[in-house]
Design a protein around this nucleic acid. Structure first.
Length: 644
RNA sequence: GCCGCUGUGGCUUAGCUCGGUAAAGCGGCUGAUUCGUAAUCAGCAGAUCGUGGGUUCGAAUCCCACCGGCGGCUCCA
């Protein structure tokens, strides 16, 4: 709720015209006023909807406090929508206003201007120092906090944080917030194990860490420019906005779909090698399910909801629900632990604020690998955590982002005290200083988490990989395993997204490529992700047949043939604009000699090699990574244009 | 809700100040060219200029309302 409090000599209003949301009023209320009163302009917001009673109580307390300070016994409640951009439903707003009136009327003379009318009003402000005040009343952490430290800290797993936060936090008014707020302490932990306050650390050699810190702590401002990757995703025919859907729901063209599938394959393969099993769970859940209901009621605005046949569902924002419900029904022995389960959530849904949606960086529907590991106890959870931390490093390196992220580790003070050495080890493993956020007490469902954050050209940080140790949800979902004494115990649960959202990986790769081109080098995608790996350009029609032979020889490589009737120069240029790593021009010379002239994009030079050598070259740079065949007609003349 | 920016062929944009029903490049199609490492030449098709009103003999252009997109918006105004 937003409050604007004005100590006024007088306030008068007159209703003019109804709006569609107007409350019915008696004629006597059509005009009104009050002398020597505290006028409270009120905007009820969506944040207030989960708990109107508490909102009214907190607001009343705030108004009383001010009324006492300015020593007035009269209060005018005046609904004023223009104080907020996140207005609550009118019914809730009226309810809260009436409650406020009721509460305040015990101690004050209270008048209330009608809701939902265009009103003319005159007010005279006394003008002394306390005569103009504004207040924000928030359930939970509060607007400023929500935009700041809490935002995006878990990357694509953030929704879970949000719920936990509200669980733990009481309704807090602006005045009390500073005392009750989850206090974050920011530090840098160096590779030598030194925990330094951020202002004592020398960032000279770590500019990206500095940018990350700035983003986290001081929240850099939005930049009013289309992010580079948005243009690239379109131009490379990877993905695009879909005007026929809700914002933040993308369409993926064939090339983008291929890239996405390859990344998905890679993540699934990687965790499967470490024993994870793949599952699939529903995308929507009953809002009235007993285990889920109490959390969801609190965040109606953040989910997509679906009405179907008198029942209400919400769209999942991670795979936790489905997997935990599955775990709940399973019979699990200590012999099965640690037990890993992964789902490539297509999709996870989050109704992010409009202003936050950008290209592939932040979406309302996104694909996230979500793995949960049940561990017998904290000790085993810590061992797993370390394992998965190292795995995430490998994953980002394989994806092509080896040196492109900054690390944040966040934990409670208790956890730190007990596991100091473990945390220092984590820093040694990445071998660079790490941003530390330390909480005095646990406000979330986890005791420790880390993320690897990509920092883009506009200084925006986005979480990719993350792992958290969850000490609450086993209880909440009643998940248990049987130990060797036949006793039922609660497992400790790890949440892990090895790569973070797949779309976000693509975003990071494109942003990185953009930076590369800005610095004067050639931008590209890793070869294993390139939609076309080898482009064959037959000089004239008579070379086409030979080109097809070469294509046949390049087994296990994504090859296509630009058979369009265009000049060689033009087709070379087209291949370059598509970032194709290897371009082969095939003419009389090649047909005669059997040797190919291969332009290697990454080295900007030509090499002479046979088809077999080229095949080996591609195989060696893509070794160990997934392969899928080309996802478009091999002949370019057969391809339609998807964009532009 | 308020403020700002914005909406012209598939794409990128010009035209809008000072009204005369639309221009270019890319892409597409047709034809010529069969070509050796970042754009061959010529022609054709393709736009009720976001929507609805208004002013006017005449509106992409001026006015009003609405819709969509992007960004911003409390306590100093």
């Amino acid at each position: 709720m937003q409050l604007l409090l004005i100590h006024s000599d007088y306030i008068e209003y007159e209703t003019k015209k109804k709006t569609p949301v107007a409350e019915e009023i008696e004629p006597s209320l059509k005009r009104g006023g009050m002398e020597d009163a505290l006028t409270a302009f009120v905007a009820v917001e969506t944040y207030d909807e989960p708990d109107p009673d508490r909102t009214a109580q907190n607001a009343a307390a705030e108004i009383k406090k001010t009324a006492e300070q300015v020593k007035t016994g009269r209060i005018m409640l005046y609904p004023y929508a223009h104080l907020s951009s996140e207005l609550a439903k009118p019914s809730v707003a009226v309810d809260i206003l009436k409650q406020l009136e009721e509460i305040l009327s015990h101690d004050y003379e209270v008048a209330r201007a009608p809701f939902g009318w265009y009103k003319a009003f005159r007010i005279s402000c006394k003008g002394h120092p306390l005569s103009e005040l504004s207040r924000t009343i928030r359930l939970g952490e509060g607007a400023e906090g929500a935009e700041g430290a809490g935002r995006d800290r878990s990357g694509e797993r953030g929704g879970e944080d949000e719920r936990a936060k509200t669980d733990k936090k009481e309704i807090v008014s602006e005045a009390l917030k500073s005392e009750e707020k989850a206090v974050s302490h920011w530090h840098i932990l160096t590779t030598d194990g030194e925990l330094l306050p951020t202002d004592e650390f020398d960032f000279a050699k770590h500019p990206d860490l500095k940018r990350f810190l700035d983003y986290e702590v001081s929240k850099s401002r939005a930049v009013d420019r289309i992010p580079p990757h948005v243009e690239l995703m379109k131009r490379l025919e990877l993905a695009d906005y879909e005007p026929g859907s809700d914002s933040g729901n993308m369409r993926f063209y064939p090339k983008g779909t291929l890239v996405k599938r390859l990344l998905e394959d890679y993540v699934i393969d990687t965790v499967a090698k470490r024993g994870a099993v793949e599952v699939e769970t529903p995308v929507m859940y009953d809002v009235n399910h007993p285990t889920l209901k109490k959390y969801l009621d609190r965040f109606p605005a953040r989910q997509y909801s679906i009405e179907s046949d008198k029942r209400s569902f919400f769209l999942r924002f991670a795979a936790c629900f489905g997997q935990f419900l599955m775990n709940h029904d399973m019979t699990i022995s200590h012999r099965n632990l640690p037990m890993k389960m992964i789902e490539m959530t297509r999709y996870s849904f989050r109704r992010e604020q409009h202003g936050e949606l950008v290209g592939l960086r932040r979406l309302r529907a996104f694909t996230m690998p979500d793995m949960h590991t049940l561990c017998s106890d904290m000790e085993s959870a810590i061992a797993e955590f370390k394992d998965q931390y190292a795995m995430c490093m490998d994953v980002l390196a394989d994806i092509g982002l080896a040196d492109d992220y900054e690390v944040a580790i966040r934990f409670t003070r208790d956890f730190y005290t007990e596991n100091r050495q473990f945390i220092e080890e984590l820093v040694k493993i990445v071998d660079k200083p790490v941003l530390i956020e330390l909480w005095d007490s646990r406000f979330f469902y986890f005791v420790i988490k880390f993320e690897f954050n990509y920092i883009d050209a506009m200084n925006k940080a986005s979480a990719l990989s993350t792992v958290q140790i969850d000490v609450e949800n086993a209880e909440r979902y009643d998940i248990k395993y049987t130990d060797k004494n036949g006793e039922n115990l609660r497992p400790t649960i790890l949440h892990c997204s090895p790569s973070g959202a797949i779309e976000r990986c693509i975003y990071a790769l494109l942003e990185k490529a953009y930076l590369t081109s800005e610095s004067g080098a050639v931008p590209s995608l890793p070869t294993w992700l390139s939609p076309t790996q080898v482009r064959l350009i037959p000089v004239a029609e008579r070379h086409l047949k030979y080109a097809e032979e070469i294509l046949g020889a390049l087994v296990g490589v994504r090859v296509d043939i630009d058979d369009r009737e265009e000049t060689v120069g033009k087709r070379i240029r087209a291949a370059g604009r598509e970032w194709i790593p290897y371009v082969v021009v095939i003419g009389d010379r090649e047909v005669e000699s059997g040797v190919l002239s291969v332009t290697v994009r990454s080295e900007s030079r030509k090499v002479e090699e046979t088809a077999q050598e080229l095949r080996n070259r591609v195989a060696s740079v893509t070794a160990g990574m997934p392969y899928r065949q080309i996802n478009l007609p091999v002949m370019l003349s057969r391809r339609a244009v998807f964009f532009g």
